[in-house]
């Protein structure tokens, strides 16, 4: 279980205080207005931002003392996920060994990961030769091949058209079920994830205002900010 308890961060113009609990293997959608602190929450879990106080643990292991590379966390951003000079399989292989010196078995695992995201036959392509959706699939494959139990997705499909976004969300859902990984994903359009997310967290003003099933958060919560957000 991912447990965030009163993690406080302070900047001159922004304060945050996060508390959230996500069950192992769940897909948690983080929604909320722009500038509310969704990405900061993900950056804190990944280790890019250090809270001044509070606790952050995954399956009872304290994450706070760990550097970003030591945390059991894989990341997919909205853009710039791939290194343009590397092929698709090399970009995926970085998730296993940044030196790219892989054994035959490890290259096989890379091929399997590409296969799992529907990119069989794309391994020799460079990012410039792929569509936006294909590039995000490669990034997803890298997150999977790393074997890290928690995957953070920061608005990963915002640049894709609605049909492709739905396909990608379904892909994430099926992969996390097959591989038993926990997924925390920020998203702009909550209605697109209502059917697949186990949990939804509404973040505004640097706080998790509400957390529960998507229906509980979006329709039954009394906070007026949620009503204003979901229209």
């Amino acid at each position: 279980m991912l447990l965030i308890d009163h993690c406080r961060l302070t900047w001159p113009d922004f304060k945050a205080n996060y508390s959230l609990r996500v069950e192992t293997g769940a897909l948690c959608a983080v929604v909320g207005p722009s500038g509310g602190g969704k990405t900061t929450l993900l950056h804190m879990i990944a280790g890019f931002e250090k809270p001044e106080s509070g606790t952050l643990s995954l399956d009872s292991h304290d994450l706070l003392p760990l550097a970003p590379s030591e945390r059991p966390v894989a990341l997919v951003f909205q853009d710039h996920n791939l290194f343009p000079h590397l092929r698709a399989d090399e970009n995926v292989a970085l998730g296993l060994k940044p030196s790219l010196k892989l054994s035959a078995d490890e290259w096989l695992a890379v091929a399997e990961a590409l296969d799992a995201v529907g990119l069989k036959g794309f391994k020799k392509r460079r990012p410039g030769e792929m569509s936006g959706g294909q590039r995000q699939r490669v990034a997803l494959a890298r997150a999977l091949v790393s074997g890290r139990p928690l995957i953070l997705l920061d608005e990963p499909f915002s640049n894709l058209d609605p049909g492709l976004r739905r396909d990608m969300i379904e892909l994430v859902d099926s992969l996390r079920r097959k591989r038993h990984v926990t997924v925390v994903m920020t998203i702009h359009t909550p209605e697109e994830i209502v059917d697949v997310a186990d949990q939804m967290a509404f973040v505004a003003n640097g706080e998790v205002i509400a957390s529960g099933t998507p229906k509980e958060v979006l329709h039954n919560h009394p906070d007026p900010r949620i009503a204003a957000f979901s229209g």
Binding site: H43, A46, G47, F48, A67, P68, S69, E70, R71, V73, A74, L75, F77, Q78, D79, H80, N81, F83, H85, L86, L94, G95, P98, S99
Partner: peptide, 21 residues
Amino acid sequence: PAEQWRLAQSLGFSPRQIFRH
């Protein structure tokens, strides 16, 4: 891009790998 620096941090790139990639 900032995202690539964060990836480098998250993937644990060494100085040599940072230079290379």
